[in-house]
Write a protein that binds this DNA or RNA. Structure first.
Length: 874
DNA sequence: GCCTCGGAAGTC
DNA sequence: CTGGGACTTCCGAGGC
């Protein structure tokens, strides 16, 4: 049954058939634009890599390849093609291997040869060679169609399972995959298509487990099928619960698997319990935890189970695990990370979502006393991860990133920056005849690269300031100076005057005419693409097409993310197309450019008050006596508006003056007032253009290890300072000191939170902090983590742990620490150490007030003389 | 009580 | 298997 449809590649793998000749079938798990799931079994691609003679080019040497051909895993060798290498242009022979898994072995057997293009996963090879992105048009034959398959695909497709199975195995598939349809394709049946938004299916689940025995007490799952949700509850014998979850996964066939903290809790627990219930043989655990998108009866049991390499992300063949905790942490940077806290942060007005009616630290008792309540609590906690992913647009963003980097969605979601960049760089390298070296496996240590330039900042207030910054600074530098491993003039290279020479170390790069670098070309492309997407978004908004506008916004954002990843990969020591000089050159030029602009601005008679890497803050030359806050009277308002206009004009002028080809300086914001206490990376400003808001950088307000009272007081202080009310700011702060001293502060506003590492010691069956920290008990957050664990709550390495500082025990020098568990199990909050918090407030805020002569000690005195009670106390 | 140092976390 | 550097703050320990 011939079939044609647009699909999105979720992930890929391959199957080997050791026939004669050997065959390899690529499996692509897809979701179609119409919402069906499919496995494409693609035939026709053979595994290969390239080999060349070591050292300098020897174009005339006669090469005997018999030894290579004699290796049993080698199937064939092509006639040579000339490819560019760092040693010059050399002949490369394409060697075909019997199977992809032989390539590693062959690399070793080919000791003296230089082996290239030899560490590329076979499914990626397919995407590279056919120039596919995640969104493809598919033409093929439907071999198997399940109930949910589109009607058209079911016609004249066999319903005989045995018949279908043998047909699938014949073309290299593993059997009946748990998908809507199985499609057989040839290479010419796949072409790249325009990006679209795929109606993915997501499975969210949550386990409630016994603290005493680790046994699973109950579980819940919610399936989200393009917005339609269905709930599923599981209770009873542990085995039944796990079987229920597993058959639901296989029946609903989701692309994404989510939940809150599934990476570190639910998935490992499923794994562990499956082993307890069914120690051996491992394959018998498939009905319990066989979540892989592969046939249940698949002979090799490896693929059917979710797996995790040491401390890495989980892999579930054909599906994408996506932990809502991790997504929330990365995009929101919440001060605390419990599900309760995060949902409160996102939906402060929705009481239903935050209702906490179960004490998770006493799960066994709760389960015994009121299982129905626990069950509903569990169900709610499977909805929330879906709500969180939806709110963060996490899935749409991964899909957009996949579309821009031309990878499967799984690579965008769970891969590394180097994999995204590989996908683009290798396509271009293959097209241009550039050999693709292996990823560097060598030592990681290397001399550090000097970073960006940070300008000294004077303490105090500065009225009317414009902020300008370079648009995509590092990518622009790479483009303008043609920085690339293919253009780098290596030792002993000639000194052509056309070369681009880095300002301090004198690293040379070939001119664009001589060789247009791979990476600069890619970046140029991406920049143009981003502008196009941005324009398309504006057009879509204008023509009232929010769906298209959303897609284009995701795409332009993905391009930004991708472009910014380039520098990091090229400054690293492991990437295949890198050299230590590349990263150093980029920052060198950056420092040179920004310093040059600073001195030119200053020569022009204007003051540069601050600068960090790609931005400069310049004092606006407004007229004498210009107001720094918006006057209330009409006359004052006119003056204010005039000052603002002057400043905007100044910003525009500067931007134009210093923008040149390949280095666009953008006028970013105008401030009516700027304040810093004199430390780099710490400042606050009142933005008057393009929006009106307060801009705070670096200060405690922005830090997740601050506490609410400090953040709030500091924000209020900044508001007053920027209004010019220094006296009011000091008084307000002193009052805050009084309040904390008199114990009038809600302890939830004093929670300090820091992330804590740790290792699970499976021998001792306990958490180990000693191997991670030299003196774990000296660190408050480790002590808090221990209390948390003691209380029966979850702990996962790297999680943020909240705590309150309490008065130290008698004779104890160390700070008293009490873990903050109120979010999770309720109960009475601990009593805080009043002097500690008063001191910390005074210290942090005193650093700021010191800029106008009021120090920490002064703040610590408070507003009222000691002994006098609060105004609320009669 | 003051100072310095190292370890650690966080931000830009 | 794997982005980087500069800079700031906080805490605890140890010396005087």
């Amino acid at each position: 049954m011939e079939w044609e449809e647009r699909m999105c590649i979720v992930s890929g793998s391959y199957q080997s058939m050791d026939t004669k000749p050997p065959r390899t079938t690529v499996e692509l798990w897809c979701r179609s634009q119409a919402g069906h799931s499919a496995v494409l079994l693609v035939n026709g691609l053979r595994p290969y890599f390239d080999i060349a003679l070591p050292g300098e080019p020897r174009p005339n040497e006669i090469v005997n390849l018999d030894d290579v051909l004699d290796i049993p895993e080698v199937v064939d060798i092509d006639s040579p093609e000339v490819k560019w290498t760092t040693n010059g242009e050399k002949r490369h022979w394409r060697v075909y291997a019997n199977q992809p898994y032989s390539v590693r072995k062959l690399r070793k057997k080919l000791g003296d040869w230089v082996v290239t293009s030899a560490d590329i996963p076979f499914q990626n090879r397919l995407m590279l060679d056919l120039d596919l992105g995640p969104h493809i048009s598919v033409k093929g034959d439907v071999i198997w169609a399940s109930e949910r398959a589109p009607e058209g695909a079911k016609n004249s497709t066999t319903t005989d399972v045995k018949l279908a199975e043998s047909a699938i195995k014949k073309i290299g598939g593993a059997g009946i995959y748990p998908v809507d349809m199985i499609v057989s394709c040839e290479l010419d049946g796949l072409t790249r298509s325009e990006p679209f938004q795929t109606p993915f299916v997501t499975f969210s689940f949550d386990l409630e487990t016994s603290i005493a025995t680790n046994r699973i007490l109950c579980a819940a799952a919610v399936i989200d099928r393009a917005g339609d949700r269905s709930e599923h509850r599981f209770r009873g014998e542990e085995r039944e619960i796990m079987e229920g979850l597993t058959s639901l996964v296989r029946e609903a066939d989701p692309d994404f698997i989510t939940g809150y903290n599934i990476d570190n809790f639910d998935l490992p627990r499923m794994d562990e319990r499956a082993e307890v219930i069914c120690p051996r043989p491992k394959y018998n655990r498939a009905p319990l935890f066989g979540w892989g998108r592969v046939p249940m009866n698949e002979g090799d049991s490896k693929r059917i189970f979710p797996t995790r390499q040491q401390n890495r992300v989980w892999r579930i063949p054909g599906r994408i695990p996506m932990d809502a905790w991790w997504q929330a942490r990365q995009t929101l940077r919440p001060q605390r990370e419990s599900l309760r806290y995060v949902s409160q942060l996102l939906w402060p007005n929705n009481q239903e979502m935050q209702k906490m009616d179960v004490d998770a630290s006493k799960m066994d008792e709760e389960w015994a006393a009121r299982p129905d309540v626990v069950m509903e609590y569990c169900v709610r906690d499977t909805h929330l991860p879906l709500d969180i992913l939806g709110h963060l647009k996490a899935i749409a963003r991964k899909e957009a990133l996949a579309s821009v980097s031309l990878t499967a969605v799984e690579t965008a979601a769970n891969g590394t920056t180097s994999q995204w960049i590989d996908s683009l760089v290798m396509r271009l390298a293959d097209k241009d005849g550039i050999a693709v070296p292996m990823t560097n496996a060598g030592p990681r240590k290397r001399d550090q690269i000097a970073g960006g330039y940070v300008h000294e900042v004077e303490p105090g207030m500065e009225p009317w300031v414009v902020v300008l910054d370079f648009k995509s600074m590092y990518p622009s530098i790479m483009i303008t100076n043609n920085i690339c491993s293919t253009t780098l003039v290596r030792d002993g290279g000639d000194q052509d005057p056309s070369h681009s020479v880095s300002p301090t170390t004198g690293t040379r790069y070939k001119s664009k005419d001589e060789m247009n670098g791979l990476v600069p070309r890619l970046l140029e492309d991406l920049m143009a693409k981003r502008d196009l997407y941005k324009k398309g978004m504006a057009d879509a908004q204008a023509s009232n097409d929010p769906v298209e506008a959303f897609l284009l916004d995701q795409l332009q954002y993905a391009v930004k993310i991708l472009m910014n990843s380039f520098y990091g990969v090229f400054a690293s020591s492991f990437y295949r197309f890198t050299h230590p000089d590349l990263g150093a050159s980029i920052t060198e030029w950056a420092r040179y450019n920004i310093k040059a602009i600073i001195s030119q601005v200053e020569e022009g008679g204007n003051d540069v008050i601050y600068s960090d890497t790609d931005s400069i803050f310049v004092k606006s030359p407004v007229h004498e006596g210009a107001p720094t806050n918006k006057p209330k009277d009409a006359e004052g308002a006119v003056v204010w508006e005039k000052t603002r206009e002057e400043t905007l004009e100044f910003g525009e002028t500067l931007a134009q003056m210093f923008t040149k080809e390949g280095a666009e300086l953008e006028f970013e914001t105008a401030l009516s007032a700027f304040f810093s206490h004199g430390a780099k990376k710490r400042y606050v400003g009142r933005v008057v253009w393009p929006r009106e808001e307060m801009l705070i950088r670096g200060y405690e307000v922005r830090r997740t290890d601050s506490f609410d009272l400090l953040s709030e007081t500091m924000t209020e202080m900044f508001e007053m300072l920027l209004d010019g009310d220094t006296e009011g700011a000091v008084n307000m702060t002193k009052m805050a000191v009084d309040e904390v001293r008199e114990e009038n502060v809600d302890p939830s506003r004093l929670v300090i939170s820091r992330s804590c590492k740790g290792k699970w010691d499976s021998k001792k069956n306990e958490w180990d902090f000693k191997s991670v920290y030299a003196n774990p008990d000296g660190l408050p957050y480790v002590r808090a983590a221990k209390q948390r664990i003691e209380a029966g709550l979850q702990f996962t390495p790297g999680m943020k742990v909240g705590y309150i500082i309490t008065e130290p025990d008698v004779g104890e020098k160390k700070l008293g620490v009490s873990a903050w568990l109120v979010d999770e199990i309720g109960g009475k909050p601990p009593e805080y150490d009043r002097e500690y918090y008063a001191k910390r407030l005074a210290k942090s805020l005193g650093r700021i007030t010191e800029a106008f002569g009021v120090d920490e000690k002064e703040l610590l005195k408070g507003a009222r003389p000691k002994g006098q009670s609060s105004i609320f106390d009669f």
